[in-house]
């Protein structure tokens, strides 16, 4: 949307304006496909790792086209560390709930295959779905968030190394 401008100002170091206009909607669609893959992980092929890699693909696409400093999907240091530790803590806490209620770490409380948990507690952890797969979708979501943050952190780090090497 170049309003009132005859030609967009474009220097040779940037990406072309076609790429700059088309990248963000494509990244939106890639991120939404990744979220769909994560949430269908217990029914269809796919899962947390694959969906997280798709979301990280959208973020990496934005980083490559726009550059690290003014990418629209910018993940800050604080966001990355907070999300990584919160999600790991959620995974461990879901396992500790199984350890406290039944005595085995990461027992599937919501699915309750062996009937080790009363039905009222199992109804809390049950995933609101047709399959009632228990804590498996929640673990999928946790691993998806971890992979999304980790993979994009590696690419952001490498882009900033390139900038540091140019400064020296």
């Amino acid at each position: 949307m170049a309003e009132g401008k005859k030609s967009p100002n474009w220097n040779k170091d940037d990406s072309s304006p076609i790429l700059k206009i088309m990248t963000l909607p494509i990244a939106f669609i890639m991120i939404a496909l990744g979220i769909m893959t994560i949430l269908g992980g217990h029914i269809t092929p796919g899962g947390g790792f694959q969906g997280g890699a798709m979301i990280a693909g959208g973020i990496i696409f934005c980083v490559i086209v726009y550059g690290v400093d003014d990418t629209p999907l910018k993940l800050s240091h604080r966001f990355i560390s907070t999300l990584e530790s919160l999600v790991a803590l959620a995974y461990v806490l879901l396992g500790l709930a199984g350890l406290a209620l039944t005595g085995s770490f990461l027992y599937n409380i919501g699915g309750n295959l062996y009937g080790a948990v009363p039905q009222a507690i199992a109804a809390i952890f049950s995933y609101p779905d047709v399959t009632h797969a228990g804590i498996v979708p929640y673990l999928n979501i946790a691993v998806g968030l971890k992979v999304l943050v980790g993979l994009s952190a590696i690419v952001i780090a490498f882009s900033k190394f390139k900038k540091l090497a140019e400064e020296e």
Partner: peptide
């Protein structure tokens, strides 16, 4: 529990492995 057996093996049966793997 759920139709996808691969995800069940990864996240239900071997959940502790997946914690270390992530």
């Amino acid at each position: 529990l759920a139709p996808n057996m691969v995800t069940l093996v990864v996240f239900d049966w071997r959940g502790f492995d997946t914690l270390g793997e992530s």
